Amino acid sequence: MRLPTEDDFPSRLRSAAVTARVGLWLGVCFAVCFVTGLVSHYAQAPDHPVPFPASPVWGYRVTQGLHVVTGTAAVPLLLVKLWTVYPRLFRRPERGWRPLVLDLLERGSVLILVAAAVFQLASGLANSAQWYPWSFSFRTTHYAVAWVAIGSVLLHVAVKLPVIRAALGADVDDPALDRPAATRPGVLTRRGLLRTTWLAAGVAVLATAGSTVPLLRRVSVLAVRSGDGPQDVPVNKSASAARVTASATSGAYRLVVANGDRSIELSRSDLLAMPQSTHDLPIACVEGWSANGTWTGVPVRHLLDQVGAPRGSDVLVTSLQESGPFTTTVLHASFADDDRTLLALALGGEPLSLDHGFPARVIAPDRPGVLQTKWVARIEVRT
């Protein structure tokens, strides 16, 4: 049994003309994913040298929705691109040191790019479905490999730029850049293949975008969240899963608000007796889903004033949940000082359901949902 060669792939569809056009849109998807991924990673960081903005309230909802949608669209684009370049894996190495170096750079960049892209897309889709069949940290690993992926994209584009420019500048049916073996017509025309690719990417977007765009929920059959849930807002982790049912419903519950040696303890009745504010704020999660909610509660800034906390203070928020990566989160000053940031007690005009964080939860504008701590037990000024 012999290894295949380029001559074994005679289809004219496997051409630089098709590869360059699909690669252009794949590059756009990768760029959007990379930039929006940086936004999400920074938003979740415990320290913000530059304050993360609390406005517009829908900012994180849009960026993370774009992140997941463009990542999903990249799947069919990547598959078609790999199909078109597959024969080049079997070509003979170039002769001469300069062509050989460029050839090795191209092959190396493609190898790294494919490995990084497949890992990013596969792990990202698994994260959207909240399925983690691995032991490493998704957030840190996904972030690190994103730099590898974007670096390999830039290297690949630099090496192939003359071919890319020539292919995009010529008609898609121009055979000038075709491989010598590419002489047989395909099942589709090149334009037909491209239209099918755009259609597949579009269907992938429509099938998943409903997690972020409510109008598309009826057609987004692959969306990880339909928008259904207690009080019309989805839930990622229930009170039962977090093992807080007993402590959250106990009559002994008290919220502790602390600033150094000054602290107060408040029951839910005490919190309800305070001045209440109501704001329409979306909750948006890293998995790409989001939903609007009308939240009512006590502004966090009002609670901090009770213990003399100065403006500009970062705050540690601790949950009744005893284990997990986000049992304690940092509420940065840009959010803590915003009047729209609430210790929410009600959603949609009704008391918070247990799964939405009863007796009290944090809700802040333009903040990742994973940081909108539920079942809040303690609010403490960070020192």
Rank of each mutant, 00 (worst) to 15 (best):
E94G: 03
M1C: 09
T327E: 07
N259Q: 09
R340C: 03
R165K: 07
S15W: 01
F358D: 05
V376R: 11
G108T: 10
G210Y: 06
Y253R: 09
C33N: 11
L271T: 00
V244N: 09
S15L: 04
P87D: 04
D280R: 14
A258K: 12
P282N: 04
G369P: 01
D228K: 12
S313Y: 01
L89E: 07
T328H: 00
H142S: 10
P325G: 05
N292Q: 14
P87F: 06
R12A: 06
V32Q: 05
L154M: 14
P214L: 09
I379G: 12
S211L: 03
V163H: 11
V35G: 00
S128N: 11
S247Q: 13
K160N: 15
G308W: 07
R382F: 12
V39D: 10
Y60D: 12
R340G: 03
A239F: 06
V300Q: 00
G324A: 03
L354Q: 11
P230M: 06
F9D: 04
R262I: 04
T278D: 07
D280K: 10
A181Y: 01
Q64N: 15
L352C: 11
G260M: 05
W25S: 01
V362Y: 03
A115R: 03
D305R: 13
A204D: 14
V172R: 08
G27S: 09
A207D: 07
R88T: 03
N259S: 13
L303C: 10
G186L: 04
T245D: 13
P49Y: 05
A333L: 04
W131H: 14
L177I: 06
L121N: 01
Q64Y: 09
V57T: 12
L272A: 14
R2D: 04
A149P: 00
P133Q: 01
L155D: 00
A242M: 14
W83A: 14
L177V: 06
V257G: 02
R301V: 15
V62C: 00
N127W: 13
L105H: 02
T5A: 11
G348P: 05
R95L: 09
L193F: 08
V370C: 02
A146N: 08
F52Y: 14
D305N: 13
R179L: 13
N236F: 03
R301F: 09
G227E: 08
V307P: 11
Q372W: 02
P87M: 05
S263C: 00
R14G: 06
S152P: 14
R12G: 01
G71E: 12
V22A: 07
V22P: 03
L266G: 09
L320W: 04
T70C: 14
G23A: 05
G227V: 08
K237S: 15
V157S: 01
W198G: 01
P351D: 10
Q321G: 05
D337I: 05
V114C: 04
A181D: 09
A200S: 14
V244R: 09
L331A: 08
V221N: 00
Q306I: 03
L371I: 10
S211N: 10
V330N: 10
Q276S: 04
A31Q: 01
T70P: 02
A126V: 00
T249G: 03
V203L: 15
R378T: 06
R361Q: 08
D305I: 07
L3R: 08
D305K: 08
D280H: 11
P53V: 10
V35D: 00
F30C: 13
E287C: 01
V145L: 15
W134G: 00
A170S: 15
P99S: 07
A176P: 00
